[in-house]
Design a protein around this nucleic acid. Sequence first.
DNA 1: TATGAATGAGTATTCATTCAT
DNA 2: AATGAATGAATACTCATTCAT
Lengths: 208, 208, 208, 208
Amino acid sequence: MSQSTSKKRLSREDSQAQTRARLSETAQQLFVENGYGGTSIRDIAERAGYSQGAFYSNFASKEELLLSLLRGHMEAEAVQLSSLMDSEGRTPEQILTELESWAATLNHDADWCMLSIELQLHANRSPVFATEFQAVWDAHRAGLGRVVGKLFATVKRQPPEDPEELAAAFMALTHGLALQRVGKGPDSSGRLIVLFLRGLIAAAAPLE
Amino acid sequence: MSQSTSKKRLSREDSQAQTRARLSETAQQLFVENGYGGTSIRDIAERAGYSQGAFYSNFASKEELLLSLLRGHMEAEAVQLSSLMDSEGRTPEQILTELESWAATLNHDADWCMLSIELQLHANRSPVFATEFQAVWDAHRAGLGRVVGKLFATVKRQPPEDPEELAAAFMALTHGLALQRVGKGPDSSGRLIVLFLRGLIAAAAPLE
Amino acid sequence: MSQSTSKKRLSREDSQAQTRARLSETAQQLFVENGYGGTSIRDIAERAGYSQGAFYSNFASKEELLLSLLRGHMEAEAVQLSSLMDSEGRTPEQILTELESWAATLNHDADWCMLSIELQLHANRSPVFATEFQAVWDAHRAGLGRVVGKLFATVKRQPPEDPEELAAAFMALTHGLALQRVGKGPDSSGRLIVLFLRGLIAAAAPLE
Amino acid sequence: MSQSTSKKRLSREDSQAQTRARLSETAQQLFVENGYGGTSIRDIAERAGYSQGAFYSNFASKEELLLSLLRGHMEAEAVQLSSLMDSEGRTPEQILTELESWAATLNHDADWCMLSIELQLHANRSPVFATEFQAVWDAHRAGLGRVVGKLFATVKRQPPEDPEELAAAFMALTHGLALQRVGKGPDSSGRLIVLFLRGLIAAAAPLE
DNA sequence: TATGAATGAGTATTCATTCAT
DNA sequence: AATGAATGAATACTCATTCAT
């Protein structure tokens, strides 16, 4: 009578999904605030309003939780990249505008960016984590690289570097700026990426 | 009897300075390897070959040691920046080459760069540390900003952005790339900075 | 409708009996491998292929399960002892051979023996358990004591000790040897018991 | 001035030795009472009147403490065995009496015996521990084996079994009886060992 | 100045057990 | 009857820090 679509009672699955989601969310906040190493499972559970045991009913370990966040990260970014790529026949100006708003969106929630830094730092320390991380990272880099390559093709100029390397540089710029910015002013990485890209195009040799 | 200027026996002061130096050095390595939070005072003391007590004879706390490293950081960078600035009458090409080698030097010891990231992360967490850190950071940013401004002046172009902001962007790029690179290939931040700068110059309006 | 005597579907009772049997069996293995204290209910349930809840549907607690194993133990041993006792008119040689094969059987499944040790250890710690354990133990000791007494009567010699004490000593020997033997060579307790018994007989005074 | 032989102040070494000794002693009691697995480091430290950290200043882990107890065990037993062996020209009766008092002494402190069982159980579970344990065990077995061999030589009889195997059987008997006896009556293992030995001698063939 | 034993709060993780489904 | 998410206390062990030597 009272379960299924009711708002009061959640089915067991939904209830666990909720617990898991709340723990994930809280963990993400805390990783950004205090770093991965500086965040204890007790902190996460307490702040999310659960027992420590509840954490272990949902995640096998702290690292597994980080991996789970990484996967969420990956999915969100894949969505954004595909919207940068899939529609045809845009002008270079349109592509640049979209790139700028891509960076802005990514970082409007500055937390995403700091989390990304925590992920990178942890990948540098845990080989297990590094393996999964690398895959996500490479995919992302390749996706953004294709956008950059497409931009140069549209303006009929030769990219002065492997577009993937340029993409990696833009990601690095974004992360480095997030590190500087924490809690301070607004994010300028979108604007700077566009500025740099315009410069590269201006200095690039025409195709052929 | 046997101390003072002898080479065998160090004066008490020198001996303490040596202890302090060895602890600092070891701490820096460990912060880079394992992060600030991931490094214990016991680790530092043990790896440096001292007791934990020796650590507390030289530093009031772990954070005080980090501040001490920050000051060393600052001095080293001030030296490098001043050598970028002080000689007159260079061609734009020379300035770019020097900028490239500046980035290369800074990161040839990639450790410096990762330590810088640890410093930034910790500044985001400890207000006490943040204050001291900000001063150092601002000075550095201003110094590098002047170099960038000088470059645009030399080529008689209008910088497309406050030179200090560009300087911050290059530092961000350098840090972001260091994060990506750990343990992997060689550093490419110098090359990329020069590439971006050439682009900006190519796209910049002439002065007046 | 479709259960009762069918072979495909077990009646609800049979199905629960099966669950209980599988949990018991698995628990016994694990107690032997890791000790009573070293075995968690989760381990038992998981290895048996059930949930933790299923455990609590069948046993009130871990100790209750141990008691259940103890009762199984008791029944099995009672069967073996009665087969040592019930047939009349055997020669001493036959009795000794049977004793040897009793020990061998008991320990061929060395697990029985290690479980017995775990039971004893736990009885030393839990008064509740000790009470039930004592009853089983005493019955077993009396039964084996009668076998020993019968042997001395058959050879018309005076036992040099209360036959029950001798029986307890043989059980102790068996357990002590099991403890030494774990995972190693074959069990020699049967042979040693016979060796010692022959000695006692050789040294014993004739009756009257 | 005031340290060294003073009773009030212990030197740092002595003070640590005392801490270590108290922790060892307490641990031994608790291992006997609750088993190795059933004893927590918190229990040990609390009962001994120290912090948990003090435990880790003295022992690297719980297992290392067990190894330390094992070594103490070994030394104590070596002393007892050598006193069984070294004086010449004893009658068989004297040797038997000494064997009886050996068993009695060993177990007068019944704790030793239960500890020995805990050691054996743990050796069956931890390969690291097993290695060290085996060495001690083998030495002990060989020592007691020599005593048994000497006894048969003295009475000019052929031992019906490798004396070392007989020795192992007596140790097993002692341990098995300790398991039965906990908290109950007095130890009878010395008496039983002598009884069995007399029997073996009575049944043994004369030397050549 | 340097030592390192000791502290007490903290770490990640596992436990037996409960209870809504 | 069986499930498994959740609990809260316990586990072994590490931490930064103190202080008598």
